[in-house]
Design a protein around this nucleic acid. Structure first.
Lengths: 149, 149
DNA sequence: AGTCAAAAGTCAAACAAGGTCAAACCTGAA
DNA sequence: TTCAGGTTTGACCTTGTTTGACTTTTGACT
């Protein structure tokens, strides 16, 4: 087994059945005698949204990395996240359809709908090359934020 | 947790629901066993105007530092729109402070805050050149959407 | 008025995290 | 055997915190 997988297993075992864990990149790297950036690699490849994790971090003194397990299930938000996984671009009207589905399912309020649509509107994104990709990124981050508990 | 955040919490708890507090820089520094200038750091990063505070101080014998919570005046959303008018770029930290003020003023809910911050996060905007300008555009559109609701 | 000690202010350096990126390194399938 | 894809490493970057040396202001006391 390679080191990355060992680190993954270690983190998972420390996490246990909990749904949140805070760790130090440097300590972890030292514990496994690897470069600190290896931890980033493990996080980027093993603790992805697709696998049900959200990673938050803070730099500077007293900083750290927090992993949050997202409640897996068949809720409309995580299913849309999965849906996004296969796209490379998100046109404005497609975004509107998706948000409307969330409103329909009572996963977002009408006010939240207005905020989301404003933030992915072509008006807001005007001037930016490849706004379809950008819109996809933004919408994904919004879904992740909504899913956090 | 780092010392600066502890000092921030301490001040906030002493302040309670009041809107004014006077404290001594040296006493505070001694209480937390830190350099006096650390207090300045806490004030400069945590008790800013953007976060709804005004700091007044007086040197010399019998001096001190007074924190005053700014009373929310007119419609915070339109005042922020005005504020944006004079900017050409919006850093992520500044955006967070502004959204926090809206939450403070009950103009947006904590969930809406999460959505807004996600949509202007550097993560969402990564890869895009001139993300500061873009963030400004997006935030402006969001404020306009909120105002119409 | 002049002195002085007691505040608070400023600023840059040191320290303490985490992030990024590309090159080097493996490894297994074609 | 080769070579594409995953893995490992290290050099350099960005952000946030802590400290201390030095400066400025001000009230109180000659």
């Amino acid at each position: 087994m390679n080191i990355s997988s060992e680190i993954e297993q270690f983190i998972l075992s420390v996490l246990g059945s909990g749904d949140e864990i805070t760790l130090s990149r440097n300590e972890l790297a030292q514990y496994f005698s690897v470069a600190p950036s290896q931890i980033n690699y493990v996080l980027a490849t093993r603790f992805t949204v697709a696998r049900g994790f959200i990673v938050r971090s803070k730099r500077g003194g007293g900083g750290g990395i927090t992993l949050v397990r997202i409640a897996g299930g068949e809720d409309p938000i995580s299913s849309q996240l999965k849906e996004l996984g296969e796209m490379h671009t998100l046109p404005e009207n497609r975004a509107r359809d998706m948000v409307d589905r969330l409103v329909e399912a009572s996963a977002v309020t009408p006010r939240e709908r207005a905020v989301i649509l404003a933030s992915v509107s072509s008006k807001a994104l005007s001037g930016c090359k490849e706004s379809g990709e950008l819109r996809l990124n933004i919408y994904r981050e919004i879904l992740i934020a909504l899913m956090r508990k």
